[in-house]
Design a binder for these strands. Structure first.
Lengths: 213, 213
DNA sequence: CTTGTTGGTCAACGCTCGTTGGCAACGGTA
DNA sequence: TACCGTTGCCAACGAGCGTTGACCAACAAG
């Protein structure tokens, strides 16, 4: 078993290493279309079903290829999720944004991103049930949300605290609207959501520390 | 297959009907301790792992009995979840609450409930990955949250809208703190959370409709 | 003491899953 | 042409799952 396992692992590692290398070089391969189809199907299934219910077989079927191809190109299910959940929130820098419009700008940005990219839904769904998914959410929060928040926040309250408050409101609306699909949350228009949530986000990012009770 | 399925369904239905009947009568049975142990273990596993990863076998092991007992008492996995996810938010009526303290009162109430009852965590985790779980969340929102909100809200904005906004902020904080466990959300104290979130909730429940952009 | 009901275990079923290895076809390269 | 890496399909493995039915022990009722 040692030999078998070691062999398999080495093979997978080699495959991944080669894939990464080629990907960064950007040299085109004949299989690029297939790889892309797999990723698209994976994001689709992960977003709709979460980690456990999204099966490799279903993803392969949706991509129109054999399940073993998924293994060849992404090593295993975890590797596939890692590749499918790579995301860039494309947060605006907020430097050129009037200070009192930060909240509205951010809320609208998140709404647009959520409706235009299934990866975000996949990330939330998987983050809730899978430890690796939760880690991925942590990384996105740490590397993309916190720095942008830190750049515009006044002192007195840690930027990580402000970022967490922002995340709680944004994630909560996304959860209610796109994942749980609570009817009143679904039927709100984008403009209504911005109007209600913008003052909240604005306060979380720019207000002084509130008085404790 | 028709005969088999019909037979199994009839059997399960009978089991459930009998269980429900005895439960509503309240006549004590020798197996009450076992039933309770199963429910406790189920809530524990559902809260920690979500629907798919929480296996009947693991739940039975934690309850110290055989997996087949779970089937006998709750019919199937879905029936077990239905029983384990019955919940009463115990929302205060807010009638005797000073109007300007509604937000703080509600935020603190939800924090207490979340920390004192794993059922809430189970509900959120399962609601995200399982359609039946999402339905259960819808029911709780409709039957317990919306009516309380409707009782204290001014006209002009539908109570269901206000309830959805409330849910988005409460669920978002619960998601960040108890499910995803974002470090800055975990390290906040209860008092800090109340101080930051209370004005938000207060505004969602009592403010006039904001101006659309 | 017998008899029927209840509480509980055990071994197995059928199924689906992630994963593997072998094999055929294709396409550049020498 | 002959070769070899790449792309893809197919069949199967082992494991874990929900679920079932046969069987045993304890108790309650006659």
């Amino acid at each position: 078993m040692d030999a078998d396992t070691a062999g398999a692992d080495a093979g997978a590692a080699t495959n991944l290493a080669v894939a990464a290398q080629l990907a960064t070089e950007g040299r085109p391969r004949r299989s690029d279309a297939t790889r892309a189809a797999i990723l698209r199907a994976a994001r689709d299934r992960f977003a709709a079903d979460g980690y456990e219910r999204a099966t490799i077989r279903a993803i392969a079927r949706e991509a129109g290829i054999d399940p073993s191809m998924v293994m060849r190109y992404y090593g295993n299910k975890e590797g596939l999720f890692a590749a499918a959940s790579e995301i860039d929130l494309r947060l605006p820098l907020l430097a050129d944004c009037p200070r009192e419009e930060i909240g509205a700008r951010l809320v609208r940005h998140f709404l647009d991103r959520w409706e235009g990219d299934e990866t975000l839904n996949a990330l939330v769904r998987v983050g809730v049930t899978n430890p690796a998914g939760a880690d991925r959410v942590h990384a996105v929060f740490r590397d993309q949300v916190t720095p942008v928040v830190a750049a515009v926040c006044p002192e007195g309250v840690p930027a990580s605290t402000r970022a967490a408050l922002l995340a709680s409101q944004i994630l909560g609306m996304a959860l209610s609207r796109y994942v749980l699909k609570l009817p009143p949350a679904v039927s709100l228009t984008d403009d209504e959501i911005v109007a209600w949530l913008a003052p909240t986000v604005q306060r979380y990012l720019t207000a002084e520390a509130p008085q404790l009770s």
